[in-house]
């Protein structure tokens, strides 16, 4: 129970008139810690800190020992052992110092609080006046105020100079800047469809209902240059549906882009370009694992859910003389995410 009288703090001004605000009672009285008054406690804490620092020394020795004695080796087990022992010893070495030092500061270092005055950030009026005067003098000495044309030319030169750096620097960054490449892939008339990643050409007779085939153009794996660039655009997903389930595909009137229930669609999402690879056999839905755009393969790959707007472009396919699936042509529209001039010629 406090013996403090709450009324005593309310300073009475004049005749019973109370102030608007309470007064700050001032800093707490400094209370000594146990370790300040009891040498035994201080001694104990000293021993604790000593122990922690010793632990750190042992940790460091442990790291060096483990470095030589526990190489990562050849198996996941030996790698894990090496990593765990090194990591835990390093942590001991560091935490021993960190916790020990902080413990010492908390308990044994003086904890007397000090008060320092603050000053306004702004400089004094006098300083400001001097500063302004200095600048004026400087301007005067420069003699520029009388030479307007010179200043203008100088500023223009300064403003233009960065171009000398930026143009060569930026100019090459985009290599050939030929953004029309977005609109074409390496699929062309007669390119065989091959399995990804093996590159085996696919026979139409091998494709059964309920299958899903991840497809690359035949010959992609043999490309010398830009293999990944081409692959990034050319990947295709091939499925065979029961022709009764196939509601529609993207073939224009009078043409057939599928073959006996087999349809091929670009695997690059029309949202932001993830591979839309997740095919649900029963619902014929294709799901993108990145942002969950869902496309209906049975219905021309139209979007049924998620952030994509456009259907996945269809690759027109047919079979060649040997029964292999081949492309009729390239895609009839750019694959992948939308860009500004996507639909232009």
């Amino acid at each position: 129970m406090s013996t403090h009288d709450p009324h005593s703090d309310v300073v009475v001004h004049g005749e019973g008139e109370l102030p608007d605000r309470f007064d700050d009672p001032g800093l707490h009285e400094h209370k000594p810690r146990q370790a300040d008054v009891d040498p035994k406690v201080a001694k104990r804490v000293e021993r604790q800190v000593l122990f922690l620092f010793t632990l750190s020394i042992l940790g460091t020795i442990g790291v060096v020992w483990a470095y030589f004695a526990l190489p990562p080796g050849e198996t996941p087990d030996s790698m894990r052992t090496s990593n765990v022992v090194l990591g835990v010893c390093l942590a001991l070495s560091l935490l021993g110092i960190g916790i020990g030092g902080n413990h010492y500061i908390k308990v044994l270092m003086s904890n007397r609080e000090y008060v320092e005055e603050r000053h306004e950030q702004r400089s004094s009026d006098e300083t400001r006046e001097i500063a302004v005067q200095m600048l004026k003098d400087g301007a005067q000495d420069s003699g520029l105020s009388r030479r307007g044309a010179l200043v203008g030319a100088g500023l223009t030169a300064l403003a233009l100079f960065p171009l000398a750096i930026v143009v060569p620097l930026i100019g090459n960054v985009g290599e050939d800047w030929n953004v029309r490449k977005f609109k074409h892939t390496m699929w062309k008339k007669g390119t065989r469809l091959a399995t990804d990643p093996q590159g085996r050409p696919i026979k139409a007779s091998d494709v059964t209902i309920g299958d899903v085939w991840h497809v690359i153009p035949d010959g992609l794996n043999e490309l010398e240059h830009g293999k990944l660039d081409e692959k990034a655009k050319a990947i295709v997903l091939l499925v065979r549906l029961d022709p009764r389930d196939l509601k529609s595909d993207q073939s224009p009137a009078g043409e057939t882009w599928g073959y006996d229930g087999i349809v091929a669609y670009s695997k690059v999402c029309t949202h932001v370009g993830c591979p839309v690879a997740l095919y649900e056999q029963q619902t014929h839905h294709l799901l993108c694992p990145c942002h969950q755009s869902t496309f209906d393969v049975a219905d021309a790959c139209k979007v049924v859910f998620g952030p994509a707007k456009r259907p996945l472009p269809q690759l027109p396919i047919t079979v060649d003389d040997e029964g292999y699936l081949v492309a009729q042509s390239d895609f009839h529209e750019p694959v992948g995410p939308s860009f500004w001039e996507r639909a232009t010629k």
Partner: peptide, 28 residues
């Protein structure tokens, strides 16, 4: 979906099994 033997040959299926067999155990 189905992965028939033309899509993933029996040998390739076994390779996939060999990969899965090593997963979910010790991480380095």
């Amino acid at each position: 979906p189905v992965f028939n033997d033309a899509n993933l040959t029996p040998e390739e299926k076994r390779n996939i099994i060999a990969f899965i067999d090593e997963q979910g155990e010790v991480s380095p």
